[in-house]
Amino acid sequence: MSTPYNFAFLDENTKRMLRRALLKAVAIPGYQVPFGSREMPLPYGWGTGGIQVTAALLGPDDVLKVIDQGADDTTNAVNIRRFFGRVAGVATTERTADASVIQTRHRIPEIPLREDQLLVFQVPEPEPLRTLEPREAETRTMHALADYGLMHVKLYEDIAQYGHIATSYDYPVMVDGRYLTSPSPIPKFDNPKLDRSPALMLFGAGREKRLYAIPPYTRVESLAFDDHPFEIQRWEHHCALCGAGDSYLDEVVVDDRGTRMFVCSDTDYCSQRRDDATEEAA
């Protein structure tokens, strides 16, 4: 641990500001709390919001896991894990079950989370209405009035144009029946995991300076219509490495002749399934 920094990089005033905002975020599920986002030693878009939330949470006894699109071994995940290893001296892990805090970019782990775990999302755009209404003052008013007709019109236009709701990630949800909320760009495959999750879920958007939360056991509904119910993606393939038929798959090009394979996006889930299979065979 390098000494020139305070524990977990941020100064204590910043941590207290984040902590007060996080407590209000939990008290008002799905509502975006403004906070004074700090400049971090990596650029916006690399998880500055998630990192600040994690820094406000971490203690010396925590075990941190960081995933990027489900993978523990991509640049973003490795960097953030190393960052906290250096400035907080916390233990890190790649195993979902061993982690007390999991910071994630764009996925929710396949293994169900427990009550004693915290999930921190890196959020690029916290405002689900932003592509429909660019003015912050307007979207705030829409949230205040729970005026979400515009989003229903957008989903309806999808159906009118394509015959189905074409949104496949960052699929908008209603939290506790009150606030329209962005689940961050997770695939809609992961949306059902938000509903009544045993683990507390925290969301941080560094550039947009907002954070929000979904408390445990909270109703989270993906928007849909009676005649066009919400559906998650399905594949005709199984994971080429572990054979899983129930996980979210990435399509990977493996040579220059266009050969493709489908593999689990959650690398920890995949490698554990393979370990288990090897053990059974032995």
């Binding site: 305070n6 524990f7 204590e12 941590k15 207290r16 902590r19 996080l22 407590l23 939990v26 008290a27 406000a56 949470l57 971490l58 203690g59 010396p60 507390l200 939360a213 408390p215 445990p216």
Partner: peptide
């Protein structure tokens, strides 16, 4: 220990508010 004591208390407050 201001840094660690307030961190430990905060985590309990957060869980108290979440549950």
């Amino acid at each position: 220990h201001p840094v660690f004591d307030s961190q430990r208390n905060f985590r309990e407050l957060l869980q108290a508010m979440a549950r």
